[in-house]
Computed example of a mutant assay.
Amino acid sequence: MSAQRPDHSEQRRLHPLPRGLVELYGLIAVLVVLIPEWIADGTINFGQINGVDSLPMRARAWRTLPELRLASMNLSEMRNLAREMRLLHYAMDTRTRLNSRLLRRLRRRNAL
């Protein structure tokens, strides 16, 4: 009267879901996740002709705080700013180093 134990070496059989149910789950995933994401992306980029610019920085803080302005720039924009501000040897600086040099220069310029 001993109960038979299943052999651990034999592979456990999983019952697959019906193909129609898997396709239904896929459709629900598209409806719930992807379509709202596409709508949000289209709404954010609506009205941008060239598609290069991201969200406009309309807040006063983005215009006045140099830290936020530099954080929103890519490295080439930072190098262009360094050239305009006549920083020496800016081309060999890393982003972190260039950021700190530009911040010092901007603060010095605003202090005058």
Score class of each variant (00 low, 15 high):
residue 3 A to L: 08
residue 5 R to V: 01
residue 5 R to S: 07
residue 6 P to V: 10
residue 7 D to R: 03
residue 7 D to Y: 02
residue 7 D to A: 05
residue 8 H to C: 07
residue 8 H to S: 12
residue 12 R to I: 10
residue 12 R to F: 06
residue 12 R to G: 10
residue 13 R to D: 13
residue 15 H to P: 03
residue 15 H to K: 15
residue 16 P to Y: 11
residue 17 L to N: 08
residue 19 R to T: 02
residue 20 G to T: 02
residue 20 G to A: 09
residue 21 L to I: 08
residue 22 V to I: 11
residue 22 V to T: 08
residue 22 V to L: 07
residue 23 E to D: 12
residue 24 L to C: 04
residue 25 Y to N: 00
residue 25 Y to C: 07
residue 25 Y to S: 04
residue 26 G to C: 06
residue 27 L to F: 13
residue 28 I to R: 04
residue 29 A to T: 03
residue 30 V to H: 08
residue 31 L to C: 15
residue 31 L to K: 08
residue 31 L to P: 05
residue 33 V to Y: 13
residue 33 V to E: 12
residue 35 I to Q: 06
residue 37 E to V: 15
residue 38 W to L: 12
residue 39 I to V: 11
residue 39 I to F: 13
residue 40 A to K: 10
residue 40 A to Q: 13
residue 42 G to L: 09
residue 45 N to R: 14
residue 46 F to K: 10
residue 46 F to N: 12
residue 46 F to I: 09
residue 47 G to Y: 04
residue 47 G to A: 04
residue 47 G to L: 06
residue 52 V to Q: 15
residue 52 V to P: 01
residue 53 D to I: 05
residue 56 P to T: 03
residue 56 P to Y: 09
residue 59 A to T: 13
residue 59 A to G: 13
residue 60 R to I: 15
residue 60 R to L: 15
residue 61 A to E: 15
residue 61 A to D: 12
residue 61 A to C: 06
residue 62 W to H: 09
residue 62 W to L: 04
residue 63 R to M: 12
residue 64 T to L: 11
residue 64 T to I: 11
residue 65 L to A: 11
residue 66 P to M: 01
residue 66 P to K: 00
residue 67 E to I: 04
residue 67 E to W: 02
residue 69 R to I: 09
residue 69 R to L: 09
residue 69 R to H: 08
residue 70 L to H: 00
residue 70 L to W: 00
residue 72 S to D: 14
residue 72 S to P: 08
residue 73 M to A: 05
residue 73 M to Q: 05
residue 74 N to G: 07
residue 74 N to A: 05
residue 74 N to I: 00
residue 76 S to W: 05
residue 77 E to P: 01
residue 78 M to K: 10
residue 80 N to K: 07
residue 81 L to R: 03
residue 81 L to N: 00
residue 82 A to L: 02
residue 82 A to T: 01
residue 83 R to Y: 14
residue 83 R to N: 14
residue 87 L to Q: 06
residue 89 H to A: 12
residue 89 H to E: 15
residue 91 A to W: 02
residue 92 M to P: 00
residue 92 M to N: 06
residue 93 D to E: 12
residue 96 T to F: 14
residue 97 R to D: 03
residue 97 R to Y: 01
residue 97 R to K: 06
residue 98 L to M: 03
residue 98 L to I: 05
residue 98 L to E: 05
residue 99 N to A: 01
residue 99 N to C: 02
residue 99 N to P: 01
residue 100 S to Y: 15
residue 101 R to K: 13
residue 102 L to Y: 02
residue 103 L to R: 00
residue 107 R to H: 07
residue 107 R to E: 09
residue 108 R to H: 10
residue 109 R to L: 12
residue 109 R to D: 09
residue 111 A to R: 11
residue 111 A to D: 11
residue 112 L to H: 12
residue 112 L to Q: 14
